[in-house]
Simulated scan of single mutants.
Amino acid sequence: MDLKNNLLKTLSGEESDVVPVISVTQVGVVEAMEKTGAFWPEAHQDADKMAALGSSLYELAGLECARIPFCLTVEAEALGCQVDLGTNERTPQISRTPFTSASDINVPSDFVEKGRIPVVLEAVKKLKDKYGDTLPIIVGITGPFTLAGHLLGVENLVRYMKIKPNEIEDAVENTLDACMDYVEALMDVEPDVICVAEPTAAPELIDPLQFKSMVKPSLEDLSNFIKTSKVLHICGSTQPIISDMASIGYDGISVEEKVDIKMAKEELGKGGRVIRTGGRTMSMGGGSTSKIIGNISTTQTLFRSTPEEVKAEVKRALEDGVDVLAPSCGLAPLSPIENIKAMVEARNEYFGI
């Protein structure tokens, strides 16, 4: 199977060979680090190790993509935040920010030459050189709203939305500029998919009206700027904002297990087009709406359940009509590789391949 073409056709709404099984979120797990010698935190800073770990679950478990980087602190660091790079079991975190207001946020002209951005760009080149057109390369970036939260502090961000909404609008306008500069640099190295992660826009943190008025416009601008396949990931119970997520312009929307796939597809008016594979009929959606990506639990199923339980959840998601099979969020570093293998095997069993 042509893995890259299969994914891109699915995201573009064309009839594809089979439901792809990928991850648009972080893929670094300790077991893969041990097998490849590409450990955190070094793999956050070294392009060779980043590329090796980013493709490790393709090599070791059959996951149908390579995905880098492994955190959402790359842009904030390049803008001047201090980052704790963590351990082999903990992802990087912002440890200090120099920003106290939106007016402090300034995107330097050499932004894409700072911090780890050059490492990510070089790792994409290495993955492209190694896999060519056989494997889709996915790069994750931080959305403008979440990046504003990294710079100002998430608590301040949520508080300012109520008492200083103009401050948030200014901050997001500035971080959108940074996102666009980063995307422009990525376009030069030609990843196949860009995943914009906006975890701070989860309904558990802001209400749907705030999402519509204060987050959605910047995501629309960013979507229009990205000239390749693109995915939007938002954590949590995103059922209340599914329609808004799908109307922004991204080819796929990545959702967690809290979202009911059947209800989401009904809400988006999906259905209509079907494919028959391995004796099964599979709804693949129709029209120009975003494809639904997900939503195998990372906190429970892929992290601590048995392979048999993984397969059962995968088959339920396929029955519900998920367009692209994937973990619901970033993989926990101690997730076992056998559970990722089980996810791929379950997809193969479902379609008789």
Rank of each mutant, 00 (worst) to 15 (best):
D110Y: 11
V119H: 02
D17H: 02
H44N: 15
I206A: 01
R280F: 04
I141N: 02
V255I: 15
T228Y: 11
V259W: 01
T289P: 07
T36L: 05
G132E: 09
A197K: 03
E34H: 04
E169Y: 10
E198I: 00
I253Q: 01
T175H: 04
T277C: 13
E155W: 10
K128C: 09
I168N: 09
M180F: 02
D192N: 13
Y160C: 12
E34M: 05
G249N: 05
E308W: 03
S213W: 06
M343C: 12
E64Y: 08
Y182T: 02
E122F: 04
E256G: 13
Y58S: 08
S12T: 08
S288C: 04
E309S: 12
Q93H: 09
T298V: 14
Q239H: 06
S56K: 03
S297Y: 08
G37K: 11
E198G: 03
D181S: 10
P203W: 01
F111S: 08
Q93K: 14
K162H: 15
S223H: 10
V274S: 14
K114F: 08
M284P: 01
G285S: 11
G330E: 08
K212F: 09
V29M: 01
G28D: 02
F99T: 00
P20Y: 00
M161D: 05
S101P: 05
E14L: 12
I253K: 02
K125F: 02
D177W: 04
K9I: 02
G62K: 12
G62Y: 05
I117S: 04
R276K: 15
S283N: 14
V322N: 06
E167F: 07
P336T: 03
L72V: 06
A78H: 05
G287Q: 14
V112E: 03
A312L: 12
L8Q: 10
C195I: 08
V24Y: 08
S101Q: 13
D129G: 06
V314A: 06
S218W: 10
V259I: 04
V259E: 00
T97K: 08
S254A: 12
V19A: 02
N295Y: 04
V74E: 07
E349D: 14
